[in-house]
């Protein structure tokens, strides 16, 4: 990790230190720091954890052990869009399994997997508090409730990787 002078998208040490400074240099800010790292870089890399540990004066294993405890923190790269499907009782009773199957059919990936183009990661999560509109999924921060399997392709289309020239997936 050398210092960074371009618009690189991998975390460089200065960026990480800036995040630590922003959140506060104490152990109790570890989770806010990890949230921020993920927001900036999509996931929390081993290198980022090492820098955070050094900055906070705690062990890397502690940072890593803490990060891996929480399901919303990713220590490995994820797809550009993260689809979360709830399979807790309220959603389960309303047919979340069928929704799950529809997503798998649409994207060709099982929960826990990422599409080859890196556009989607699909995961089954515990209750998201959307029981009033069960079955529900979240795509990134967007909520979709009262779902039917038929609605899935249209929803996913909104997040489809673009095929235009920019190559950015706009």
């Amino acid at each position: 990790m050398k210092s960074c002078n371009s618009d690189c998208c991998v975390p460089c040490e200065a960026d990480i230190v800036a995040i630590v400074d922003k959140c506060g240099r104490t152990e109790c800010n570890l989770i806010p720091i990890l949230h921020e790292l993920q927001r900036s870089f999509g996931y929390i890399s081993d290198e980022a954890m090492e820098t955070v540990a050094a900055e906070l004066g705690i062990t890397v294993s502690q940072v890593h052990g803490t990060a891996t405890f929480y399901t919303l923190l990713y220590t490995r790269p994820q797809g550009k869009n993260i689809i979360k499907i709830c399979d807790s009782p309220p959603c389960h009773l309303q047919g979340s399994k069928a929704i799950q199957a529809a997503i798998t059919k649409a994207l060709g990936i099982e929960p826990g997997e990422t599409t080859l183009d890196g556009n989607f990661t699909f995961e089954v999560v515990s209750c998201m508090g959307l029981c009033g509109v069960a079955p529900a999924i979240m795509v990134n921060d967007d909520v979709y409730g009262n779902l039917t399997a038929e609605a899935i392709p249209e929803i996913l289309d909104k997040y489809a990787a673009c095929s235009c020239c920019c190559g950015e997936g706009c």
Partner: peptide, 14 residues
């Protein structure tokens, strides 16, 4: 972690 402060071993995942 605490006696030796080496910090190699820790609980991972849950």
């Amino acid at each position: 972690q605490n006696v030796q402060t080496v910090g190699t071993l820790f609980a991972v995942d849950r």
